[in-house]
Amino acid sequence: MIHIKAQRGFLLITSVVLIVIAVLLLTVMVFMGVTGDESSVEHSRSGQALFVAESGLERALRGFTTGTACASLSYTGNIGPGSFSTMGTLFAPAAVNLAANIATP
Rank of each mutant, 00 (worst) to 15 (best):
G67P: 05
I19C: 13
A53Q: 02
R45M: 10
A95L: 13
F64R: 14
A49G: 05
I13N: 03
V34E: 11
V34P: 02
F51A: 12
A95T: 11
F51H: 08
L50S: 13
D37V: 15
S74E: 07
P93C: 14
Q48S: 04
L98H: 03
L18H: 04
T66S: 11
M29C: 11
L50A: 12
S85R: 09
G47A: 11
T68L: 13
I102L: 06
S40K: 12
I21V: 15
A103T: 15
L25R: 02
F10C: 09
V23F: 14
R45I: 11
V96R: 02
G67I: 05
C70A: 15
L50D: 10
N78T: 14
V52Y: 07
G56A: 06
L26V: 07
D37Y: 15
V16S: 10
L18Y: 07
A22M: 15
A92F: 06
T66H: 09
I102K: 01
I79T: 06
C70I: 01
S44R: 13
V52W: 06
G82Y: 05
P93H: 03
A99W: 03
T86P: 01
S72G: 08
L50M: 09
M29W: 07
L11Q: 09
N78D: 12
T104L: 14
A100G: 02
T66L: 08
E58I: 04
S39K: 12
Y75E: 09
L50W: 07
V23G: 08
L50V: 10
S74V: 07
I79S: 02
A94F: 08
